[in-house]
Design a binder for these strands. Structure first.
Lengths: 154, 154
DNA sequence: GGATATTAATTACATCTCGTAACTATATCG
DNA sequence: CGATATAGTTACGAGATGTAATTAATATCC
């Protein structure tokens, strides 16, 4: 009788609780590297897509451009990422990871992989694959900005 | 080539994206009722557990006591919830939902149920049940404050 | 070619969620 | 009674996220 049985019927509630657990854990895992979930994501994506522009990065991670600015300021200040003016478009920056950034990305990637595996303990490979599929289906249900939206009116 | 394929291997990343979609959507659904995900949860749990104390409620929802105070101030100000001094312990309050709160809880519950179903579209009953099971497993993997934690050191 | 609009990044805010430390008033225990 | 613990509160701070407006550079249109 945990008291929240009324909410446990909602996938959204279970997801909130599960994600909160993950976020707390992964941030603890990343803290020794001076990273957080968000900065780790940004660093990883730049590493995997050198030369990326900020607008593209924001699009990829589904975050707003202004929010990216401070994150990149932070990563640049830590000498993990560089912003260099694009030759073909002097408004834009090409984002790259420094050597230091590459090393940190590699080491933290291992730690996050371990974390992710630890959080999924007790789930078979089948179940993990099914979870990934379900999560992606939910994302597409959401982002489709779904106009044929039928909700009960207050 | 969405650019974040490096992160898609992580369940935590897919979960973040899926949860963000859910949160945005549910908050939009709840806005007409003057509620948010958090206030809806608090209202629902009090309704389901009349007489609850704030500390118990915080425990149930896994939020810190101080954070509950403002939420209850808000719900009390909207005349949805009452705080009445407990007779047996004059430090504590017994939380209850007003008639107005009960009606709002019922109507918003319908809306959130529809939302939850909409976000889970494309998933069979089996898949939804598996998703719930996986999410709860992950929660328990997290909250166990797991001392035998084996992480790679920076 | 020059005026106009568009785009990339930024600045300046505002809000929400979450967490910790310290305070008060009761209550409990020895 | 005095020490300690508990319920709720206050006061902060950090982090994530969103919008509007600004600046510099580019693209477009007449």
């Amino acid at each position: 009788m945990s008291g929240d049985s009324i909410l446990r019927v909602f996938m959204g509630y279970d997801m909130k609780r599960a994600f909160a657990a993950i976020q707390t854990d992964v941030n603890a895992v990343l803290a020794p590297y001076g990273l957080r979930m968000l900065t780790f994501s940004v660093l990883s994506v730049i590493r995997d897509n050198p030369g990326l522009r900020q607008t593209q990065l924001a699009e990829i991670l589904a975050i707003e451009r202004p929010n990216l600015v401070l994150i990149l300021d932070e990563l640049e200040g830590l000498d993990l990422v560089t912003r260099t003016r694009a030759r073909d478009d002097r408004r834009a920056y090409e984002l790259k990871v420094t050597l230091k950034g590459r090393r940190l990305a590699e080491r933290s990637f291992v730690a996050v992989t371990e974390h992710d595996d630890r959080m999924a303990r007790g789930l078979s490979d089948e179940e993990r694959a099914a979870l990934h599929r379900a999560l992606r289906q939910i994302q597409s249900n959401g982002r489709s900005s779904d106009d044929a939206r039928q909700v009960s009116r207050p």
